[in-house]
Design a protein around this nucleic acid. Structure first.
Lengths: 236, 236
DNA sequence: CAGTGAAATTTGTACTATAATCTGATAGCG
DNA sequence: CGCTATCAGATTATAGTACAAATTTCACTG
């Protein structure tokens, strides 16, 4: 049997169950037993167990013999797992998580920009410039501009040379892609080219302090935008 | 059948395989087929597949029909998964990863401290103070002092109120626990009480800027210590 | 009433069988 | 020879069955 959702049944179930869990669908009822799950999703126990094991690996579930499987408290979820964060952000009313994530970006990205200015990895810096130029070139096309914006930010992480920063790539990818839906409701906002260019120039000049400051400025702007979106949806 | 390692066979295999992968044991040979793995580890295909699926969920492996299972390039590993980071740090010659991780802490923890000073969550701040007092009380006992040190740092993350920062708890837990082995080789270093107290006082006073600075100071100190350890092991 | 042990429930492990997917070889044909 | 189509083989994906292990429940015994 082959689901339409994922490439494989197990990955389809991973996504289905993961989304259901973050939406709190099992909060009142408790998580079903394997047997129930198999019936409900029409899958064999083998693949169902594999999906449950993957969710356990991400901290969302835990199983014990005879006691069944239960949803872990949210503080045990691997929020920094790309899948988990995406599920959380795709969930309705996820403004808060966008805010908190941007707060974390505010800790990471300026530091990464400062590091990039120090490390001076020429190839990686060229990639940042390419991102900026793509932003300029695609100013008309929403989707392409978003991709360029993402590339720009991710390239900075890469240029920092720190693998932990680089690992935020898929997270930021999802976050930007999804937050656009949020912030676009508020204003005809398009990413400020000048603000982005300021980071790039500072990095190219090896000015770590300035790169840090410029990066902070952009993120504070995002923060304000998300807060505005939050206020708007709260009012509605 | 029941392994001695983990609670269950599947989790035992998860650990075994995970450690082997980060040590690069399959770099030359390529990752074995399911059948080979079952023979090598004496496990059934069922549990072996569950272990492989968990490793896939953490970004270490990927499988395709007919083509077999392969180790993903390291940039796809979820470094921010507690298990993955622990395996990497337990690995011999892992100085570099300690350095890079501390660099990331240098981005996060000062920001968290600043946030904690702003948020003023009284209960959480009390927990920080308890950590500090435990550090003072256990000055003689290596293990207890380490635990207190860990509690102190983790409590700050908690007091920030940001769940992404809190998620670093298990990572920092492992990192501090393991880095002690590294840094203790270098000097009779014990964590500076005064430096830690400076953070706490700043947070209690609601002085975000000072809290940030004090936190940075401690982490810069750690960074220097690890660099010294690196130099020492490189010489040997 | 306490304790003990049997039964029931649920996950853990093992094994078999078949399907699906991709690789590579090979046979046939021009 | 060269190209194409088809088939065989390898490997993971899925399904199903059977039994083991753990832990709770509960009834029964003393």
């Amino acid at each position: 049997m082959r689901s339409e959702l994922g490439v494989s049944l197990a990955y389809g179930l991973l996504a289905s169950l993961g989304q259901s869990i973050v939406r709190g669908e099992f909060e009142t009822t408790g998580f079903p037993t394997e047997a129930e799950l198999c019936v409900r999703y029409g899958a064999s126990r083998t693949v169902m167990r594999e999906a449950v094991k993957m969710l356990s690996a991400k901290g969302l579930l835990s199983s014990r013999q005879r006691q069944g499987t239960r949803v872990e408290p949210i503080e045990n979820w691997n929020l920094l797992d790309p899948d988990v964060l995406r599920w959380l952000m795709e969930r309705p009313f996820s403004n808060k998580i966008f805010l908190e994530f941007t707060q974390m970006r505010l800790a990471i990205e300026p530091t990464a920009a400062a590091l990039a200015a120090e490390v001076q990895d020429k190839v990686a810096i060229a990639a940042i410039r390419e991102g900026l130029e793509a932003m300029i070139a695609t100013a008309g096309d929403q989707d392409a501009a978003l991709q360029a914006d993402i590339d720009f930010h991710v390239s900075i992480l890469k240029a920092s040379g720190n693998p932990f920063f680089m690992r935020l790539k898929p997270l930021i990818n999802n976050a930007l892609r999804l937050s656009i839906q949020l912030t676009n409701k508020i204003s005809g906002h398009t990413a400020s080219i000048a603000a982005h260019e300021a980071i790039l120039v500072a990095i190219e000049n090896g000015d770590a302090a300035e790169a840090e400051k410029a990066s902070e400025a952009i993120l504070h702007e995002s923060l304000k935008l998300i807060e505005a979106a939050e206020a708007a949806t709260a009012a509605a």
